[in-house]
Design a protein around this nucleic acid. Structure first.
Length: 486
DNA sequence: ATGTGC
C-alpha cells in the first residue's frame, strides 16, 4: 500500500487523490485528505494533519473528518476542513466554523467585456477604493444603531431588500436566500453588536478583497450558459465576512464553552477545539448566534455589491440594470448548518461544519436554487490576486465523499509573519501591474505583502483535484483586472 | 479573520 508520512502522521492512499488516516487510539472516526501528492507535500511540515486527526476526537463525528485540497492549519480545526457531527448526540464547535463566521464570496456578472474596461482600470480601481470601505476598524456603507443591527441579524438580505439595497433576484441567488433560519439576535452579545454597528458594508482586512475580473475560459458551455458566463466578460468578486461582530461572537462562545463544558474540553486533544454538546443550552445559543452572524455577513456582502453597482454606474455612465450587473451566487465558506445526509443507508441530521470549505450540492438537490437546479449550485473558488479564480458547479460525488462540499480557495502556503519577511507590498503591487496588468490598491502595504501571490498554493492544482474527484466540476476561469483590499 | 493576545 502506498503511504505518505508527515510529522508523525501516516496516510494511506485509498485511490487517486484520496488519503486516509485510519482510526486508532482515542479517534472516533478515520480522517481523509483529498489532495494530490504535490498538495500533500505543502502541508507536511505544519499542523494541518495533526489538527485533522484531533478533529476526529469530537463527539458524534460522522464517517470522516475531511481535509479539502486547499487545506492548511487554522485555529484548532484546519482551514479547508469539513466535520459532520451528529445533531442529537454530537456537538457543535466554534473553532470548526472559524473566527470569521460566514466569510464567503459572491460573484456578480455584467454584460461588459474586457475591452470596455481596458484603459479605465485606474479610474475604476480608484473609484472602488474611494467608495467601498476597507481596512481594519469601523466605517461602513450604512452607519447603523443596535436596533438596526438586530434587524439585520434576524432577517439577513430581506432587510437589505426592504431598504433598497437589494432586488428580489439577489435573494434568490444566495445560499438560504440570504436569510438563515434559526437566527437569534438575543444570543449575540451587546459587545458584538456594538462592534458590528459601524461595520455594515465594509470589506475588512487580511485576505478580503473586491476584484474586477475577466472570464478567460469557459470549460463547460452548457453550465456556463446556465450561470450566464462567457469568455471576455467582466465579472466582480466580493470576498468578506462578518467583521468584528462575527469575531466577537466566536470569541464569546469559546469562552462560555470553556467555562460550562470543561468535562468535554478536557477529553479533547486541543483546547482550541472547544465544543458544546448537541442538545445543551449553549449549543442552541451558539447556533442561534452563529446563524445571526451569518445573516450579518450576507448583508455586508450585499451592501458592498450595491455600492459596486453605483460605482460602475458612475464610471461607465450607464445604469446597473443596463450593464446587467446580476448576482450569480453567494457562497458561505465558514459556517455550520443542520443538514440531513444519508449515512450507511439511513437519513441522519448532522451539524455540518465547513471551515474554509464550500457547499457543493449537485444537480437536483432541493437546496439548489431553481435557476441552477438542473446543473448544480455555483461554487466560487478565489485564487490569489495574481492568479484569478474559478467557478465550479456542485459535483455528483460530493454527497458521498464530502457531505456536499469542496474547496474554498487556493489555501495559504505560509504565515502572514513569514509573508511580510519575504515580500514588500509596494514591490508586489508594481510587479502585478507591470507584468500582468493587474491594478491593486490597498489601505496597507503590509496587507499586500501578506497576500502576495507567492504565499498561496496553486489554485489550478486545487481545482484539478476537486474536478477529478467529481465533488466540484470546473465551469469557468477568471483573471484579475483590478483589486481593492484592506 | 480581528479595535492584530491570554
Amino acid at each position: 500500500m502506498t503511504t505518505f508520512d508527515a510529522n508523525g502522521v501516516t496516510l494511506e492512499r485509498i485511490r487517486e487523490f484520496v488519503w486516509e488516516l485510519p482510526q486508532e487510539g482515542e479517534m472516533r472516526s478515520p480522517a481523509r485528505v483529498l489532495a494530490s501528492e504535490a498538495l500533500l507535500e505543502q502541508i507536511s511540515d505544519d499542523k494541518t494533519l495533526e489538527q485533522l486527526r484531533n478533529a476526529t476526537h469530537l463527539p458524534g463525528i460522522t464517517n470522516y473528518a475531511i481535509c479539502m485540497p486547499d487545506g492548511h492549519q487554522g485555529y484548532g480545526f484546519p482551514v479547508g476542513g469539513v466535520g459532520a457531527m451528529d445533531a442529537e448526540n454530537g456537538c457543535i464547535s466554534p473553532g470548526a466554523v472559524g473566527y470569521d463566521i460566514n466569510c464567503g464570496v459572491r460573484m456578480m456578472t455584467t454584460n461588459l467585456t474586457y475591452s470596455d474596461v481596458q484603459g479605465h482600470e485606474e479610474e475604476l480601481v480608484d473609484a472602488l477604493f474611494d467608495n467601498v470601505p476597507s481596512g481594519l476598524g469601523g466605517g461602513g456603507i450604512v452607519e447603523s444603531d443596535v436596533d438596526t443591527v438586530e434587524d439585520v441579524l434576524a432577517r439577513g438580505v430581506d432587510w437589505a431588500l426592504e431598504h433598497g439595497y437589494a432586488v428580489e433576484e439577489d435573494l434568490l441567488h444566495c445560499e438560504d436566500e440570504g436569510m438563515r433560519e434559526g437566527a437569534d439576535p438575543s444570543k449575540v452579545t451587546q459587545k458584538a453588536k456594538d462592534r458590528g454597528k459601524n461595520q455594515l458594508g465594509s470589506l475588512g482586512s487580511g485576505n478580503h478583497f473586491l476584484e474586477v475580473q475577466r472570464v478567460t475560459d469557459v470549460f463547460d458551455g452548457e453550465v456556463g450558459e446556465a450561470f450566464g458566463l462567457e469568455k471576455d466578460q467582466i465579472v466582480v468578486l466580493i470576498h468578506c465576512g462578518s467583521r468584528g461582530l462575527g469575531h466577537q461572537t466566536c470569541n464569546d462562545y469559546l469562552r462560555k464553552i470553556e467555562q460550562q463544558h470543561r468535562g468535554l474540553l478536557n477529553q479533547l486533544p486541543d483546547k482550541e477545539l472547544a465544543a458544546a454538546p448537541a442538545g445543551s443550552q449553549l449549543a442552541e445559543d451558539y447556533y442561534g448566534a452563529m446563524n445571526a452572524a451569518i445573516n450579518f455577513a450576507w448583508v455586508n456582502r450585499q451592501l458592498i455589491m450595491h455600492r459596486t453597482r453605483q460605482v460602475f454606474e458612475r464610471v461607465f455612465d450607464r445604469s446597473w440594470e443596463e450593464m446587467e450587473m446580476n448576482l450569480l451566487y453567494d457562497v458561505a465558506h465558514n459556517i455550520a448548518k443542520k443538514e440531513t445526509h444519508e449515512v450507511g443507508g439511513e437519513q441522519r441530521e448532522l451539524y455540518v461544519h465547513r471551515k474554509g470549505a464550500t457547499r457543493a450540492f449537485p444537480a437536483g438537490h432541493p437546496d439548489v436554487p431553481s435557476a441552477y437546479r438542473d446543473v448544480g449550485q455555483p461554487v466560487i473558488i478565489p485564487g490569489s490576486m495574481g492568479a484569478g479564480s474559478y467557478v465550479l458547479r456542485g459535483g455528483e460525488a460530493s454527497m458521498d465523499l464530502t457531505f456536499g462540499s469542496t474547496a474554498h480557495g487556493a489555501g495559504r502556503l505560509m504565515s502572514r509573519t513569514q509573508a511580510k519577511q519575504d515580500y514588500w507590498g509596494g514591490d508586489v503591487q508594481q510587479e502585478l501591474q507591470d507584468r500582468q496588468q493587474i491594478y491593486v490598491k490597498a489601505q496597507s502595504g503590509a496587507t499586500i505583502a501578506e497576500e502576495a501571490p507567492g504565499v498561496y498554493k496553486d489554485v489550478d492544482e486545487v481545482v484539478r483535484v476537486s474536478d477529478a474527484l467529481g465533488i466540484g466540476d470546473k465551469v469557468a476561469r477568471t483573471f484579475p483586472v483590478c483589486n481593492i483590499k484592506g
